[in-house]
Amino acid sequence: MRRCGPTQELDETPGPGLRRRGTMTDARGDAPLMETGIDPATLGDDDLFRELASLYRARLATLRHGPDAALSNHFKRTAELETEYITRYPSREVDPDRLTQDF
């Protein structure tokens, strides 16, 4: 097996790690993987928040020291996860103390 990420593996031979037409799944075989990870739409809220937190922790190191491909994947994954968050919480609370100007 080949590692696809911290918790994902891909079978090199057809089986539970591969779906028809080559769509990868996570190690359990139940969540489809996107090019940069598990499809955010299939994540529960806790998993989505955990993925976002992990991504933000790795951000500076990826920006400063990662190769171009890693930075590109980071941008894509950030967009995927943040878009899913905004889709789920379009009316999220905005802390007025965080505003820098009146909107």
Rank of each mutant, 00 (worst) to 15 (best):
M1T: 15
M1H: 15
R2C: 12
G5Y: 02
P6H: 12
T7F: 11
T7H: 14
T7Y: 12
T7D: 13
Q8N: 11
Q8A: 11
D11E: 12
E12A: 05
E12D: 03
T13A: 10
P14I: 02
P14D: 05
G17P: 00
G17I: 06
L18H: 14
R19Y: 04
R19E: 06
R21G: 01
R21W: 03
M24P: 08
T25K: 14
D26A: 13
D26P: 13
R28W: 11
G29H: 03
D30K: 10
P32W: 10
P32I: 14
L33P: 03
M34K: 12
E35L: 15
T36E: 09
G37A: 05
I38N: 01
D39A: 06
P40C: 00
A41Q: 01
A41C: 00
T42N: 03
L43R: 01
G44W: 02
D46L: 13
D46N: 10
D47C: 10
D47F: 07
L48Y: 10
L48T: 08
L48E: 04
L48P: 01
F49R: 05
F49S: 03
R50M: 08
E51S: 14
A53C: 07
S54G: 11
L55C: 05
L55I: 09
L55G: 04
L55V: 04
L55K: 01
Y56N: 09
Y56T: 10
A58W: 01
A58S: 13
R59I: 00
A61G: 03
T62Q: 04
T62N: 05
L63R: 03
L63D: 00
R64T: 14
R64M: 15
R64D: 14
H65P: 06
H65L: 15
P67N: 06
P67E: 07
D68E: 10
A69P: 01
S72G: 13
N73V: 01
H74L: 09
F75T: 11
F75W: 13
K76E: 08
K76D: 04
T78S: 13
A79T: 00
A79G: 00
E80T: 01
E80H: 05
E82L: 07
T83G: 01
T83H: 00
T83E: 00
E84G: 03
Y85R: 11
Y85H: 12
Y85E: 03
Y85M: 11
Y85S: 08
I86L: 15
T87C: 08
R88Q: 12
R88H: 14
R88A: 14
R88M: 14
Y89A: 15
Y89H: 15
P90S: 04
S91T: 10
S91C: 10
R92C: 10
R92N: 09
R92I: 12
E93Y: 15
E93N: 14
E93L: 15
E93T: 14
V94K: 05
V94C: 06
D97K: 06
R98Q: 06
L99R: 05
Q101E: 04
D102F: 08
D102N: 03
